[in-house]
């Protein structure tokens, strides 16, 4: 048991199962006819939402590691990223099979002509190399290049937000909220933020020294 905890196998397994809950709920609702008047659209929305949630969660791990004493965030980064990929595959399969039913000519037209589908599809394509290189083995083999390659996720995040923003008709509040969250998470990665953070830590350190003197 202790060994399991030490290797993080158990917490990881729990997180893995939790990540499958949205799919479980979707299947449950589908089975019970709870997906409303337009189930295909509902599946599209729900899987799309979860792609965004997982992308944002993945991008939260590095800032969390930077600003806390915790080491665990980095251990879940790849897992969460892979679930973003998992839900985007479901999202795309729903489009391909249920929504369009393999109407290839329509699909090609959509991808070429509709900007929101163009950016969404691009984001999906860009996620593929990241998913493929997410094994330990690949990480070792790519070395420094791995990090470079995986910084593609920043572009993917922006494309995903644009995909959402460009598909709504008038009420863009929700995509703008997600966009603001993404912007914040990207700002955490700038040198500007690093400087700010070091300054803050320095000031906090100064205070404790002063406290000790008292």
């Amino acid at each position: 048991m202790r060994r399991i905890l030490q290797t993080n196998a158990l917490p990881k397994a729990i997180v893995f199962v939790l990540c499958l809950v949205p799919l479980g709920l979707l299947l449950w609702d589908g089975w019970h006819g709870q997906l409303g008047a337009n189930p295909i659209e509902k599946i599209m929305r729900r899987t799309g939402d979860w792609v965004l949630y997982f992308l944002l969660l993945t991008l939260t791990m590095t800032p969390l590691r930077k600003t806390s004493a915790w080491r665990w965030p980095l251990r879940y980064r790849r897992l969460l990223g892979l679930f973003a990929f998992f839900y985007v595959i479901l999202h795309f399969l729903n489009y391909l099979v249920l929504d369009q039913f393999f109407a290839w000519d329509e699909i090609v037209k959509d991808i070429v002509k509709r900007p929101y589908i163009t950016v969404g599809f691009t984001a999906l394509l860009l996620l593929i190399p990241l998913a493929v290189t997410s094994t330990d083995n690949m990480m070792r083999r790519l070395g420094r290049d791995w990090k470079k390659l995986h910084s593609l996720v920043y572009i993917i995040g922006v494309l995903a937000i644009l995909h959402y923003l460009w598909l709504v008709k008038a009420d863009n509040r929700t995509p703008l909220i997600y966009g603001a969250l993404l912007l914040l998470l990207l700002l955490f990665r700038t040198p500007w933020f690093d400087r700010l953070w070091k300054l803050r830590r320095f000031q906090a350190g100064g205070q404790t020294v002063a406290d000790r003197r008292l």
Partner: peptide, 8 residues
Amino acid sequence: RWSQARER
């Protein structure tokens, strides 16, 4: 932003 050729 979308086709009007078909409908559900």
